[in-house]
Amino acid sequence: MSISSIDPSGTVAASEMEPELNREKLLGMYERMVQIREFEDLAGKNFAAGLVPGFVHLYAGEEAVAVGVCSHLTDADYITSTHRGHGHCIAKGVDIHGMVAELMGKSTGVCKGKGGSMHIADVDKGMLGANGIVGGGLPLACGAALTAKTLGTGAVAVCFFGDGASNQGTFHEALNLAAIWKLPVVFVCENNGYAEATPVAYHCSASDIANRAGAYEIPGVVVDGLDLFAVYEAAGEAIARARRGEGPTLLEAKTYRFYGHFQGDTITYRTEEEVLRYRDRDPIAGAKKYIKEHGLATEEELDAIDARVVADLGQAWTDAQAAPWPHPEEALTDVYVSY
């Protein structure tokens, strides 16, 4: 089934390049979105309960972006991520149980408790790390794309970053480098309206961050980041273009984070009315509505998916709480391959 035939809102333009979305794939994407939401809701709750040391930045609300983009990727493709990286990890297939354990700093974490929320990574899944440095991942994605191009693997690199990162020098350096070398990379700007507590209308000179693509003469595309299907289609075109060797695209997904910048944020910079307006456009509810209206799955089938996700994540937290802490001396390993 093609997107143009299934989109109810009319926000997705018909295209000859529409990737096929069958029932199985669409339900898989739905499940991923629900996993991200449940992961984040539980992370927030358990952070408040004192089970998660350090900082957490939650991705809830932005699920359609990670899932819409990563559904085009395989383990051979690469992504770089941000401090708000849990959703990207889940969408790229990183083990959720290992992620929960990593949030807690347990030895069973995907990074053995050495990274935590802000540095979750799994290179075997092509996930090159959440990143504590705003704009830090943009040059790294160029490098992963250079590897793909040099070795001729056909892989692409997708770089997720926020609206705040678009003001960093690395954003401009990476776009230029990717453009002149025609690297197979897609820059996905998740514009959630705020760089920490500062609105995008203040911090960014461009009304659309995608306009900045023009300076590098690469395609710049704005997409509704709350619409799974719109993201899926736009990302599909950008990724296909990169795979064809035609170079990078800047894709700006206008999205919204349901929580604050970090857990503990008082969020005085947003109005309740604004938050509710976006909650009304919940990307998961939108996907669910679409699936039901098109007879792709029944309410009961979707409920069963939801229940499965909730049970699995509940188990993940139970397991992580029971898992051993790392031995203190483990702090001394993994600095070098050899030294």
Partner: peptide
Amino acid sequence: RNRILDTPITEAGFIGAAVGAAATGLRP
């Protein structure tokens, strides 16, 4: 020129790209 790569004057860009390339299978 596929292995001897002239870069723009963009140290954060190309040093970072070298890191990303190193993490994914090249030896830059």
